[in-house]
C-alpha cells in the first residue's frame, strides 16, 4: 500500500456505545492513557444504533477511518445490538471494498467499560493503520 504521506494526520470517527466502549474511552482518559487525538469519539446508546448511514456519512464528509465499538458479545445492554452491528459492518466492509474503498478503513471492536487500556490500544493501532493507508480517496 501507499507509503505514509508526510504530514498526513488521519481523521477518524469512533462510534462508541454508551454502556461499554464509551465508558472504556472515558476510563482511558482518567487513567491518563494516551491515544491519538485523531480519533473523535461519538457516543451512541448502543452499537446497534450505529446506522450504516452514519458510517457512510462519515466517509462522505472526509473521514479516513471509521471505528465502530460496542460491548463484548453477551454484554450488550440491549441483549443483541452488537451482534447485529457485527453483521452490518461485515456487509458494509464488503460493499466498500466492491466500490474501491479499502475495507480496512472500517473496523469494529468490542471494548468493555473496564478496558480503558484496550480502547487506547485499538485507537492507536487503528490510527497507525489508517496513517499507513493514507488519506481517504473520498476526501475532497
Amino acid at each position: 500500500m501507499a507509503e505514509t504521506e508526510k504530514g498526513f494526520e488521519p481523521k477518524i470517527i469512533a462510534f462508541c456505545c454508551n454502556w461499554c466502549s464509551y465508558a472504556g474511552a472515558d476510563l482511558a482518559g482518567s487513567m491518563r492513557l494516551k491515544y491519538p487525538a485523531n480519533v473523535l469519539p461519538i457516543r451512541v446508546m448502543c452499537s446497534g444504533r450505529i446506522s450504516p448511514h452514519f458510517i457512510l456519512k462519515a466517509f462522505q464528509r472526509g473521514a479516513d477511518g471509521v471505528l465502530v465499538t460496542g460491548c463484548h458479545y453477551g454484554d450488550c445492554h440491549y441483549i443483541k445490538g452488537n451482534y447485529i452491528t457485527k453483521r452490518r459492518v461485515t456487509i458494509m466492509k464488503d460493499l466498500l471494498k466492491f466500490v474501491g474503498i479499502d475495507p480496512r478503513r472500517l473496523r469494529a471492536d468490542w471494548i468493555a467499560a473496564s478496558e480503558g487500556d484496550k480502547f487506547a490500544k485499538v485507537a492507536t493501532e487503528f490510527t497507525e493503520e489508517i496513517r499507513a493507508l493514507g488519506p481517504s480517496p473520498l476526501r475532497g
Binding site: 448511514h53 457512510l56 462522505q60 458494509m92 460493499l95 466498500l96 466500490v99 473520498l138
Partner: peptide, 14 residues
C-alpha cells in the same frame, strides 16, 4: 452527493 447516495441505497438492498 456521491458515492453516499448510491451506497446508502445499496446497503438498504442487502
Amino acid at each position: 452527493e456521491i458515492p453516499i447516495f448510491h451506497l446508502i441505497r445499496a446497503f438498504h438492498m442487502a
